[in-house]
Write a protein that binds this DNA or RNA. Structure first.
Length: 699
DNA sequence: AAAAAAT
């Protein structure tokens, strides 16, 4: 029996593309619900299970979808036919699973069983999102009535600034070999480089820095301020690292004992150690030190920003209002720090802990900036995008757009998502009509550029979210190629919770006199997250995991591989705990849907690979379990940052085998996290406690 | 090992 009787729906996804490309996505969206008569929920026929009367007086109007749900639905729609069978990506296991159901497993099928008949009416609304959410074009009547005229005009002396000031295209190309687009630039030296402002910042010289080989670099005492501060491993141009003094990747860190209390800031003053670094390899040290000096100089104290408002930072009324709608009434410290310099056209490096509001920190000023540069111009059909935001995963790109889009929309700018795993027709269609801001992942962006369907040459602001990750092997080169295609001298913004030296590859080539920000005292472990390490016997692992996961509240489990993530989700499911997986082996429709199901609370447990480690925001995950320990402290910080967001509390539990204790301690030390280690066996009360279940009171 | 483009 065919999986889908509906003729159109049964075709392969790519067959939809001509249709998507042929008309606007908005028209497309309007039509499709009407044509969904093939038994889909929402059917017009009274016999169908999803039937609902046309006029439903008592029911709330159609404001049922949050932006995220809508986005997920629309993305999924293009490949719905593929998604029809929830297990199609795991064909090998199909027999086993269906067999189980056949002999009377009472539990409903995992994917669709508990799905309420498509009614989202009673789903808790997320009040931090604007009720209206259009993932593509706004309806005309939804555009803000106010025109640009009532905005305070501050563009008089500033709009030209970033483009009329010292242009960066007179910037020198450092090497002519592989940089096609930069050969118009004169040689750059630290002396004659145009200053962007009259500040007394030392000009940094990246160019004459000795090849960044670290082999001969002096060992420095990093105190307790490890790689987080621009000291990450470089992977770009470094050939083979001699193993002289660095047995592991970040193994040059001194061991520090877990003795004293470490959370007080007074106890970790050793940032100064950076500046007191040995003098060998001067230029290299100079680079590190300059960056770090700025980190200190421009660190923002939370108290200082208490009475700053978004308006006073230079954002227009519409944007300020939209931010309030998004739940951002007044700026978080990272936002207070970065908005003004971004509006000033500066390149910015910013580090803010997970969940500290980085998206708005770059998104709001980006929109404002693009708006100013467009002031007085018509929105032309087919205009080229002016801003680009790059993210390492599709889910993150989607999420960023969910935040940026309402902000952009409030001032009449358009955004579109450009990422893989979905038909490109919609995306290309949007580009053809003209968008101002694109948000996406590197692969599809490059793809469309090469196909001549995306022109980056007018991009004047480029943002890298999770910038250090974007410098990982495999990401760096595409990112470089993309950035080289942006407008000469375009403004670059690099954000991450773990911004470190890994970004130097990009800083060297693309950033000029960057301003660097971090939020003082906002260390990753300051407060809201409780970290625990469970030392377990490998044989107990599955049972212990199941025990931890069997709970109220949302749980995110991290596994190292896709296969293990899939296996764990199945194991939990088999144990009667509904769980879904999120990893790169799933098609995008399932990825989007499974994440949405955790967000909406329809499933409490999600087992993910590191695809979910960074940036993904789900409101109320209160337990993160690392079924496999991360192999990098940065990964630990990002994974654990999925809980304890925006000041909420959360618990992070990491399972390790006994022989990993040493390594785990080192990793936590680098992450500057204190966590008790406990040996645990199946049935221990600690498991009950950590899962939040009540230990049975002895009656 | 994972992620990111299809094919």
């Amino acid at each position: 029996m065919p999986k889908n009787k509906k003729p159109a729906g049964g075709r392969a996804a790519k067959n939809f593309e001509p249709r998507y490309g042929a008309k606007t996505s908005f028209q497309d969206r309007k039509r499709r619900p009407g044509e969904a008569s093939g038994g889909k929920p929402g059917s017009k026929s009274a016999g169908h299970r999803g039937y609902r009367p046309e006029t439903d007086a008592g029911a709330p109007a159609k404001k049922r979808w949050t932006a995220q749900e809508r986005a997920g639905r629309d993305e999924a729609r293009g490949i719905r036919s593929q998604a029809r069978d929830p297990r199609d990506a795991r064909a090998p296991r199909e027999g086993e699973r269906s067999a189980r159901r056949e002999y009377g497993d009472a539990r409903p099928p995992r994917e669709f069983g508990t799905r309420p008949a498509r009614s989202f009416d009673d789903r808790p609304r997320r009040d931090d999102r604007p009720a209206r959410s259009f993932d593509d074009r706004p309806r005309r009547d939804d555009r803000p009535a106010r025109s640009f005229d009532d905005r305070p005009r501050r563009d008089g002396d500033r709009v030209q600034r970033s483009f009329g000031g010292p242009r960066r295209d007179d910037r020198p190309a450092r090497s002519y070999d592989d940089r096609p687009r930069r050969d118009d630039r004169p040689a750059r030296s630290s002396d004659d480089r145009p200053r962007r402002d009259s500040s007394d910042r030392p000009a940094r010289s990246f160019d004459d820095r000795p090849a960044r080989s670290r082999a001969d670099r002096p060992k420095r005492d990093f105190g307790d301020r490890p790689a987080r501060s621009f000291d990450g491993p470089r992977r770009d141009d470094r050939p083979v690292r001699s193993s002289d003094d660095r047995p592991r990747r970040d193994g040059d860190r001194p061991q520090r004992s877990f003795d004293g209390p470490r959370r007080e800031r007074e106890d970790r003053p050793n940032r100064a150690d950076w500046n007191a670094a040995p003098t060998r390899d001067k230029a290299y040290e100079a680079h590190v030190d300059v960056v770090h000096e700025r980190l200190q100089a421009e660190a923002i104290q939370a108290e200082e920003v208490a009475d700053v408002t978004f308006g006073s930072l230079g954002l227009g009324d519409n944007i300020v209002r939209t931010l309030a709608d998004l739940g951002a009434a007044s700026p978080f410290p990272i936002q207070a720090a970065t908005i003004a310099p971004i509006l000033d056209g500066k390149d910015v490096l910013a580090r803010g802990r997970t969940g500290s509001g980085k998206t708005i920190a770059f998104g709001a000023p980006l929109v404002e900036s693009i708006l100013r540069s467009q002031a007085g111009k018509r929105r032309e059909f087919g205009r080229t995008p002016k801003a680009l935001i790059l993210a390492p995963t599709r889910e993150l790109a989607l999420q960023i757009d969910r935040t940026i889009q309402p902000i952009a929309r409030s001032v009449g700018l358009f955004t579109t998502q450009i990422y893989g795993g979905v038909p490109q027709g919609r995306q290309v269609g949007a580009l053809r009509k003209g968008v101002d801001i694109i948000i996406g992942t590197p692969g599809r962006i490059e793809d469309l550029v090469e196909q001549g369907k995306l022109d980056l040459s007018d991009i004047r602001i480029a943002v890298l979210d999770e910038a250090d990750h974007m410098c990982d092997l495999g990401f760096l080169e595409p990112v470089q190629r993309i950035l080289r295609r942006t407008e000469a001298g375009s403004q670059k913004l690099l954000f991450s919770a773990t911004l470190d030296r890994e970004v130097a590859a990009l800083v060297d080539e693309f950033l000029v006199e960057p301003a660097v920000f971090e939020v003082a005292g906002e260390d990753q472990d300051s407060g809201t997250i409780d970290h625990r390490v469970l030392v377990i016997d490998h044989r107990d692992k599955a049972e212990i995991l199941a025990s931890l996961v069997d709970r109220e509240g949302k749980t995110l489990v991290f596994a190292r591989t896709r296969a293990y993530a899939e296996m764990l989700a199945e194991q939990f499911d088999d144990a009667g705990i509904r769980a879904l997986a999120l990893h790169g082996d799933l098609n995008q429709a399932k990825r989007t849907r499974n994440l949405e199901r955790l967000t909406s609370g329809r499933v409490q447990v999600l087992v993910a690979t590191d695809v979910a480690a960074r940036g993904i925001h789900v409101d109320d995950i209160d337990l993160v379990i690392q079924a496999d320990m991360p192999d990098e402290y940065k990964t630990y910080l990002h994974r654990s940052g999925r809980t304890g967001r925006a000041g909420r509390s959360g618990t992070v539990v990491t399972l390790i085998a006994r022989q990993r204790r040493r390594r785990m301690m080192e990793l936590l030390e680098r992450a500057e996290i204190d966590a008790p280690f406990d040996e645990v066996r199946v049935g221990d009360d600690l498991l009950e406690e950590l899962s939040g279940r009540q230990v049975d009171p002895v009656g």
